Structure formats: C-alpha cells, structure tokens
Simulated assay, not measured.
Amino acid sequence: MFAVDLHAHTRFFHGHRRLGDRFDPYGFRLLARAIDVRGLDGVATTNHDYYTPFSSARVTVIPGIEVSTTRGHVLVVGPDPPAETVPGEYTPAEVVELAHDRGCAAIVAHPYRDSTIRELDELPFDAIEINGKHPRTERLVQQLAERHELPLVGGSDAHYPFEAGRAYTRIDAAELTPEAVVEAIRDGRVEPRVATGRSDRALRRLYRTIHARKHPDGLLSDPSPGVGDPPEPDDP
C-alpha cells in the first residue's frame, strides 16, 4: 500500500512560462521535500497544461498534467502524459481519449470548483478527485462518484510546498510505478485521505474565505438541487 498525492504543482503562480520553467526545478525540490516530510511515498506533478519530467531520491514521482478543458480541469496521470496542451482547446471527451491513448488515467479534478464536467454523462473517466482545498464538498463528490460508479482519489492541489499532502490517495499496488498507479485507479484499488491536523483546518478556512470572495454566490458551483455545503467534521 502506498500513499501518493495525485495533484500537486511545482510553481506558486500561473502564467509567466519562461520564468516558471526556470523556477520549476527549485519548486519541485521543495515539493518533494514537503511530500517526504508528510510521510507520503510519492507525488504526481500535475502542472497546468504542461508536463516536465522530474526525479527525486526522496519520493517517487508520477508523471502528470492538469488539462484546462472547455468545461473544467482534468488530471492526466500515468507513464506518458502530453508534454503541453492549449488551455480551452480540448473538450473533456477529447482529453479522456488522449489520456487513454497514452496509457494514462483521466481524473475529474475539483468537480465543484470552476467545472461543469460533472454534468457530462457517459464519459469514460477513471476516477473523481476529492480536492485538498475543498474537503467540505467530499459528500457531494462521493455522491457523484457513486452515480457514475467511479473510484475516488485524493490530491492536495498544492501550489505552495506547505500545502502538499493535505489530501492524498492510498494505492493498493505491488510497486509504485506510473503503470501500476493507472491500473490501481482503474481497478478501484484506491482510497482518498484528507489530513485533519490543526494547520490543515486553518488552511482550509483561509481557502474558504478566498474562494468566497472569488465566488460570491458560494464555494460550490451549481451544487445538486437541495444539497448544501456540509460542514467539515473536523471544524471546531
């Protein structure tokens, strides 16, 4: 059994590609150190719309990319993610096909933040994510996964190293390789975990405040009718 953060970034900012490319190796070292300190076995590097190979003596690195589709973000994780994608160019269906053609898993990222992918039926996604920034939506994500009969995974969505490992995935596999991770996801041999320490709770409250300002109508985008935003069980 391995513990892997399936959604993490190596830079603190979006855009500024040239500056970011120079910063990424340093950002990755900080990320790997944070994952190691958390006691996790590995991390998927899922930068927005590009993939850069990394390696570490501290943790196992799973290749990945977070693709900005026409309807929201999709994580593509596995042995051969695309090197680069154009934001808003691909539909979710096209990204799923792209992922599968490359032997990767296609995962719905944060389905209740800036995403309407959850409204699209009959797409062969491999899993749905419980996002470390919004564990309050966990019950809604569970219901979504049950409705589509898909496994749940966890990822921190870390952009800063101290965020890494707030949510992660327990993976039942004999070895920790990209191929084994994809196979375990598709077989449902995965289980999400959300950190509940004091600093984790404080960080989530901060993110709720930030996203409440960004989305005045509420943290959730178009939640299911009659379903509210359930309180976190670890809130004091």
Rank of each mutant, 00 (worst) to 15 (best):
A3I: 05
H7R: 04
A8S: 15
H14W: 14
H14F: 12
H16S: 13
G20F: 09
F23R: 12
P25H: 07
L30C: 15
L31C: 07
A32H: 09
V37E: 14
G42Y: 02
V43E: 03
Y50M: 02
T52C: 04
S56W: 10
V61Y: 09
G64D: 01
G72Q: 02
H73L: 03
V74H: 00
L75N: 01
L75P: 02
G78C: 00
G78Y: 00
V86P: 12
E89V: 09
E89F: 11
E89H: 13
P92I: 00
L98Y: 05
H100I: 05
G103K: 01
C104V: 00
A106S: 04
I107T: 02
A109N: 02
P111S: 04
P111I: 03
R113Q: 14
D114Y: 11
T116M: 14
I117N: 13
I117R: 08
R118F: 10
E119N: 14
F125C: 11
I128Y: 13
I130V: 15
I130Q: 03
I130K: 02
I130R: 01
P135W: 05
R136Y: 12
E138P: 11
Q143D: 14
Q143C: 11
A145S: 10
A145I: 03
P151A: 01
L152H: 05
H159Y: 12
A164G: 15
R170D: 09
D172Y: 10
V182E: 01
G188K: 06
R189A: 15
R193V: 12
T196Y: 05
L203H: 08
R205K: 14
R208L: 09
P223S: 12
P223A: 09
G226Q: 06
V227D: 13
P231M: 07
E232G: 06
P233V: 10
D234N: 11
D235P: 04
D235M: 03
